[in-house]
């Protein structure tokens, strides 16, 4: 790959990595784009934490129903085989480890898979956590989609998070426009890079990186 990935290409990459038959929760924002690239042949079932499995695409026109929304409060549709359940059941589905993959955005991820994505810690900010901590805690795999660098060029994959944590040791993969990182007990492994070499990537990061394979 000679250039970094666009947001669409990144969403397509994540979608392609989701195993057929998976139950998946896509977080608000960039992760939601992944649903555009899931194929019918994958038979992926989407969960939305306000109480539904089998969520379909965003509703348009006459499909819009105020009683049928996703966790981002966007009107959505239901697919054949959908089910509804109350909030405690919905979070039991997450916390109980029944979801295969959850895809989330992040401010920072640490080398041990700690996630910070709910609060900047600014003293005047009104905190709001929603389902972020539950999502980070329960799924078998937690994938993060984020830009790798802040505007000033600082990497967001860090030795230790400086923002308040959402979950401890929960992230298993980080998808960025420059590279895909796998996090396990050995550390952070670079699965592939886009538009730069492993060495160029390593030079811009403060953490030790392992090569794939």
């Amino acid at each position: 790959m000679t250039t970094t990935l666009s947001r669409e290409q990144l969403a397509r990459l994540v979608a392609g990595d989701i195993a057929p038959g998976s139950f998946v929760n896509l977080g608000i924002g960039q992760p939601t784009m992944v649903s555009n690239f899931l194929t019918p042949a994958q038979h992926v079932t989407l969960h939305t934490e306000n109480g539904m499995l089998g969520m379909g695409p965003e509703a348009v026109g006459d499909q819009i129903d105020p009683d049928l929304i996703n966790a981002g409060k966007i009107p959505v549709t239901e697919l054949p085989g959908a089910s509804y359940f109350h909030h405690a059941d919905s979070f039991a589905i997450m916390r109980g480890g029944h979801l295969d993959v959850c895809v989330l955005g992040a401010f920072q991820v640490s080398t041990t898979g700690d996630l910070a994505n709910w609060h900047t810690g600014a003293p005047d900010a009104i905190p709001a956590v929603g389902g972020a901590m539950d999502l980070a805690t329960g799924a078998k795999d937690v994938y993060v989609m984020m830009s790798l660098f802040t505007r000033d060029g600082t990497a967001k994959l860090v030795p230790a998070c400086t923002y308040p944590l959402t979950g401890v040791g929960c992230v298993t993969r980080v998808y960025t426009n420059e590279a895909v990182f796998l996090i396990d007990d050995d550390g952070v492994r670079v699965r592939e890079t886009f538009g730069l070499t492993f060495e160029e990537l390593a030079a811009r990061m403060e953490i030790p990186l392992l090569r794939a394979g």
Binding site: E49, H86, H87, A88, S90, F91, A92, M94, R95, P127, A128, V129, G130, G131, A132, M133, D134, G138
Partner: peptide, 9 residues
């Protein structure tokens, strides 16, 4: 402030 799933549970 309570995480959503903890609130429900």
């Amino acid at each position: 402030l309570v995480p959503q799933g903890n609130l429900a549970e």
